[in-house]
Amino acid sequence: MITNQKISLSNKLSQVEGIIVSDMGGEKVMLSIAKGKYFNLGEMGGEIWDLMKEAIEVKQIISVLESIYQVDQEECEEQVLTFLSQLFDQELIKIND
């Protein structure tokens, strides 16, 4: 069941500029000096992050991931929406509707 309503499948999302991003052993890590926080998106999160270089609809992200990974649609939607909401809460991504 999808409980998080902050980010929806029709939202267009993109990365927020000015964040220090690096690849460490296949995992995407970020540093926000302003917030004093270090973020690790992991391997899967890094792949989702890369898809948001340009504004992209959430349902497109889901579609790309479903074509690459063995996962059913509902599980993918739920987990990706939760993850994207966390990124949004931390102001790492923005909505471009």
Partner: peptide, 15 residues
């Protein structure tokens, strides 16, 4: 052949 799915997670460290 499709890759194995792993749930995406965000790890946050307050520095």
């Amino acid at each position: 052949m499709k890759k194995q799915w792993k749930s995406p997670m965000l790890e946050i460290l307050d520095i």
